[in-house]
Simulated scan of single mutants.
Amino acid sequence: MPRLKDIYPTTIQLCDAPLLDLSEAVLQVLGSQLQGSQKAECAHNFLSNVLTDYDRSELAALACSESWSWLYSNGFICQHPISDSPWMTLSRLGCKHYEQSTPLKSWVEDRQLPEELLHPSLRSAALNLFKQEMFDTAVFEAFKTLEVSIRKAALLSDEWIGTKLTTHAFAPKIGPLTDKKAESGEQQALMQLMSGAIGSYKNPQSHRHVGLEASEAREMIIMASHLLGIVDSRRAS
């Protein structure tokens, strides 16, 4: 059974470890520990072992307490279902990451989609779906929101959909959302960008299960947010 001491031999190494790296080590130690006859652990016992292994270092115990808290707040450990508080065990997410040895750093990066980066109209449905790991549906909702926003800004009826809508709304020189002051090549490029985004990212999600990864969905939703900002500026003008 691995111990933190095997991963971080000295107190200095443990205390200098980044939070995610130390949390990953704590998860691996807990996972190994809970695979045997022991099915639950509490923070007090775990941190007592840390104090014993690291010469009663309160800084080492504090660092591990931070990692324990991070694992709990992010759903990797949870209250044991049939034990009294404060006994904890690995959650389903924690078991998955322990078994697959997936780096926590990758998990965090794949799921970072800050609310402040998004257009206000995407902060409810699309963001909530993303957090539920329903990535295909989140992208579809984001670009459906974009499509509806274009239609409303251009004062068009519901029969205008998809690339038919975008090529009309942003048609060079004559489109209701076209910046008439922009150079003709820029007008053409924006029309193609809007059409390409709707055609590439909304339509496939509405016709079949695409199976997007978190990182792909995040990039697409941020693009939808950027395009919604452009539509807003054209509506204002």
Results as ranks from 00 to 15, higher is better:
Glu219Trp: 06
Ile161Ala: 14
Ser69Pro: 04
Ser124Glu: 14
Ile174Arg: 11
Ser225Glu: 04
Asp21Glu: 15
Leu19Arg: 05
Arg235Lys: 13
Asn49Tyr: 12
Phe143Ile: 01
Glu66Met: 11
Leu156Met: 13
Pro204Cys: 06
Cys78Lys: 11
Val139Ile: 02
Met88Asn: 12
His44Gln: 14
Lys5Ile: 08
His44Met: 12
Asp84Cys: 08
Cys42Trp: 08
Leu127Met: 07
Ser195Gln: 11
Asn49Phe: 09
Ser73Lys: 10
Gly31Tyr: 05
Arg3Trp: 14
Ala126Arg: 03
Ile77Asn: 01
Leu34Gln: 00
Phe170Asn: 03
Val231Asp: 01
Tyr201Ala: 07
Gln188Tyr: 10
Pro172Asn: 10
Glu159Trp: 04
Trp107Pro: 00
Tyr201Ile: 02
Leu59Asp: 15
Gly185Val: 02
Ala125Pro: 06
Tyr201Leu: 12
Gln28Glu: 13
Pro9Val: 06
Leu20Arg: 04
Lys164Glu: 15
Ser91Ala: 07
Asp6Trp: 03
Met134Ser: 15
Phe143Pro: 01
Trp70Ala: 00
Phe170Pro: 01
Trp107Ser: 03
Glu24Ala: 08
Glu213Tyr: 10
Ile198Glu: 00
Ser184Ala: 14
Ala189Ile: 08
Ser124Ile: 10
His207Ile: 04
Leu47Cys: 07
Ser73Met: 11
Leu113His: 06
Leu51Phe: 10
Gln28Asn: 10
Gln79His: 13
Ile221Phe: 06
Leu59Gln: 15
Pro120Trp: 01
Met223His: 10
Ser195Gly: 15
Arg123Val: 04
Ala153Met: 07
Glu24Asp: 13
Leu155Trp: 11
Ala138Arg: 03
Ala17Pro: 02
Thr89Glu: 15
Glu99Tyr: 05
Leu34Gly: 01
Pro176Val: 03
